[in-house]
């Protein structure tokens, strides 16, 4: 029962990502959206660098914040249609807000 974890808060201001990473397992996926996208900035040690789980970034939110060109290479940029597809691929969705 793999889970898609969504995090919409900045790692600097909020514990959502940190707590999510405590419980995220290898077969789960992580989707960063809204202010959550800042966790994937190059040079930011937010904890996602060491993850073996798949990491997705909502492209629209990274672009809106001007950081689409400053993201760590391990992440996959997705659009909303792919966000929907991920919800189908994973068995359930857990939001961390």
């Amino acid at each position: 029962m793999a889970i898609l974890h969504t995090v919409n808060q900045s790692p600097d201001r909020h514990s959502a990502l940190r707590t999510c990473l405590e419980f995220l397992t290898e077969q789960d996926g992580l989707l960063l959206l809204e202010d959550g996208v800042y966790a994937a900035l190059i040079g930011v040690r937010s904890g996602i660098e060491d993850l073996s789980a798949d990491i997705f970034i909502l492209k629209a939110d990274a672009e809106a914040r001007g950081i689409a060109g400053r993201l760590q290479q391990e992440v996959t940029l997705i659009d909303y249609a792919e966000f929907v597809d991920l919800c189908v691929t994973y068995d359930k969705v857990k939001n961390w807000s």
């Binding site: 919409n8 959206l33 809204e34 202010d35 629209a60 939110d61 659009d79 909303y80 249609a81 966000f83 929907v84």
Partner: peptide, 14 residues
Amino acid sequence: SAAAQSALRFAGAA
């Protein structure tokens, strides 16, 4: 918050 806009975009895509 961004919740409404995100939800609306997700709804449209779904």
